[in-house]
């Protein structure tokens, strides 16, 4: 299948400490996959392995494979800059660039790629991305104001627009709504449902209702006392949240756990 993303026996280490071990899972294209699990089970680590942001941290290593469209992203010939343009990322805390205006923030990635320099095309990209991120109506008259002048929820949607502007195939979101109020959270969930027709979305969340509401598939991860995080169960969200197969999954989603 096109734009397929999957991991094959993926393990990740911080120094000698193994954070996740032997994770094998396939992310269905054009759908939303949620990763849930208690704190420290390695959800962020797994997510960051998918676009090779894990290696940005010093002394980290990865074993196993991440296959994107049939080629291993950890192959030596793969260029991380082009990989990260195909697999975009939204962080837990909104991180707009404070010295850039709203539109410059959206276009930051496009300008990095450097393949568009025509003003009207750039303006079109900015508008399309902001519309997709459900922010256009709120900022269309203040595009020259700094990105940091927006509210937290708006900033996070700005960061989503920034990630969408480079037309990634996959969008990774690490607790994108955890620092936001319920209304902003709802807006982000709505826009995720909107854009999943164009992008493969993988979201880490601590909010079980959120996972149940927005995701098509859910993976439950768990780490032992000193053991690395593993994928316990992975299935359609409707199944995970109604008839989980594993006792530990059930304990977790019913709140009898950690």
């Amino acid at each position: 299948m096109k734009q397929e993303l999957r991991t094959d026996r993926l393990s990740a280490f911080y120094g000698a400490h193994c954070a996740i071990r032997d994770i094998t899972m396939t992310f269905r294209p054009k759908s939303i996959t949620a990763l849930i699990g208690p704190s420290g089970c390695g959800k962020s680590t797994l997510l960051r392995c998918l676009n090779r942001m894990h290696e940005v941290i010093a002394n980290t290593t990865v074993k196993g494979q991440v296959m994107l469209d049939g080629s291993n992203v950890y192959d030596s010939g793969i260029d991380t800059t082009s990989l990260r343009r195909r697999v975009g990322m939204v962080f837990q805390r909104p991180n707009p660039f404070p010295t850039m205006s709203i539109s410059d923030n959206v276009l930051a990635g496009v300008r990095l790629a450097g393949d568009v320099s025509d003003r009207s095309t750039l303006a079109e990209i900015a508008e399309r991305s902001l519309r997709r991120a459900a922010l256009w109506d709120e900022v269309k008259d203040i595009l020259n104001r700094p990105g940091t002048s927006l509210s937290g929820g708006q900033q996070q949607r700005l960061c989503i627009a920034r990630a969408l502007a480079i037309e990634p195939e996959v969008l990774l979101m690490d607790e994108p709504a955890s620092s936001l109020d319920p209304i902003s959270t709802m807006k982000i969930e709505d826009l995720m449902r909107e854009i999943k027709t164009d992008f493969t979305i993988i979201i880490v969340t601590h909010n079980m209702q959120q996972a149940a509401r927005v995701s098509d598939f859910t993976g439950f991860m768990l780490a032992g006392e000193a053991a690395p995080g593993e994928l316990i169960e992975f299935d359609e969200s409707s199944k995970i949240f109604t008839t989980p197969q594993d006792k530990r999954t059930e304990d977790y989603i019913t709140g009898r756990f950690g």
Binding site: N51, M53, V56, T81, S82, L83, R84, R85, G88, M89, F91, R93, N95, P96, F97, P98, T99, M100, A108, G109, L112, A113, C159, R162, A163, I166
Partner: peptide, 24 residues
């Protein structure tokens, strides 16, 4: 977050320095 934000957009280390770190 500023550095990783730029790297995640597909920047090189050098671009991260000149476009995220220095302006900030």
């Amino acid at each position: 977050e500023q550095r990783e934000g730029m790297l995640a957009l597909g920047s090189t280390r050098w671009e991260m320095l000149t476009k995220a770190v220095l302006p900030y």
